[in-house]
Each structure stands twice: as C-alpha cells, then as structure tokens.
Amino acid sequence: MLIWYTIAVLLSLAIFSFLWKDNPLYKFAEHLFVGTMVGYQVVVVFSQIIMRKIVDPISVALDNRQILTLISLVIATLIGLLFLARFSRKVEWVSRYPISITVGFWSGYAIVASFKTNILTQIRGTVVDDLGQPLLNGHLIGDFFKNPSLKTLDLATAGPLLVFGVIVVLVYFFFSVKHDHPMVKFANKPALFYLMIGFGASFGYTFMGRISLFIGRMNFIFNEWWPLLKQTIGG
C-alpha cells in the first residue's frame, strides 16, 4: 500500500512542480497521465459501448429472434464503422455521414429542450418566484412605507431590481440594434454594472472553494501518506 501511496504523492508533487517551471518531472507526469487516461478510455468504450451496447444486445436479439432490434444495432454499428473511412484518402469523405447524423440529431434534440430550460423557465422565474409569488409585488412596497427598515426595503426592491437587471442585460446583447439607439444607450451602463457584479461575485464565490482543493491535496500528503510512511518505517 505504501508504494501506491508514495506513487500518488510523487505524482502530485510532479504536477505541482509545473508552477515553478516546465521540467522533466512534470513532463513525465503529464505524459503518463495522458497515456493512462487514453488507455482507460479504450477500456471504458470497449466494456460500456462495444460489449454492453453492441455485442451483448446483438446476442440477446439473436437468441430471441428480435429482427428489428438486430437490424437497428447492425445499422448503427455500420454507420459508426464509416468513421474508419478516414484511414483512406480515397473514401475519407464517407466519414461525413456519421458526423452529419450525430450533429443533426443533437441539434434537433436541443431546439425545444433549450427553448424550454434556457429561455422560458428563466423568464418565468423573472415573473414569479419559486412559490408562485409575483416579483413585482405592490404589497411589499406598501409594507416598506408602513414600516421602513432594511429588511422591508430589501423585500420591496429585490424583485423590481431583478426584473430590471434581466431586461437591461437582455437589451445590452442585442446584435442588430445600433449603439445610438436610445433603448440600447439607456441599457448599456446598468447592464454592464449588473454583469460585472455578477461575474465578480461568481468569481469570489468559487475562489474559496478552489483554495480548499489545494488544502485537500496537502491534507492527503501530510495526514494520510506521511503517517503511513512513519508507521511503515518505524514499525
């Protein structure tokens, strides 16, 4: 076990050495990493796709005489095999068939789904919140005037500010409207303001998480490997 742990620690240090400069240790780790991952991918594709999605279903289909399933699997495999046409200059263009099938299918597949999740769901969330309450809510503004405090101010303004932000940023990205159009001119500054606060906040939010990743790695070296090494050598 100690050997494997030590390998793990040495490889970690080799990767970290890249921060100092490119060096043979890093090159070794990098090339080992690539080789291992590609080999691993071959095994995954073989076991998860070739065996599980082609060979096994074909033998099941043969046993049960499911002709349609069999034909479907054979066609898919043949289309996939067309990729291998790339190895010959003469019939190279045949590999465009699997490409256009894949690209076409995923494109069609994305249309309605993206319109729903990326657009309609987001816009709906700008009209009402998760509980179905409208974001522009006159009662909350009334509450603030009745009982002015930071909390009621937040409740009263959060919705309107959100709606305003969404609209100005949407307008900011219009492609076919000239810069001097009054609507775009108006939206420009506030939109950039919203965007920069948003990106800055996301940056800051992730920052702490990333720092803890490094601490996690150090933890492995000092709290897992080091005691194991001491134990093995000492004991």
């Binding site: 987001q122 969330g125 700008t126 959060a158 500010l161 959100l162 709606v163 305003f164 932000g165 969404v166 609209i167 100005v168 940023v169 949407l170 990205f173 303001f193 919203y194 965007l195 606060i197 948003g198 990106f199 906040a201 996301s202």
Partner: peptide, 9 residues
C-alpha cells in the same frame, strides 16, 4: 439580486 439577474439574462 444582481448576480441572479445577470446570469439569468
């Protein structure tokens, strides 16, 4: 507020 608005748009 601002982050949600920006990301949503």
């Amino acid at each position: 507020v601002p982050t949600t608005a920006a990301m949503r748009a």
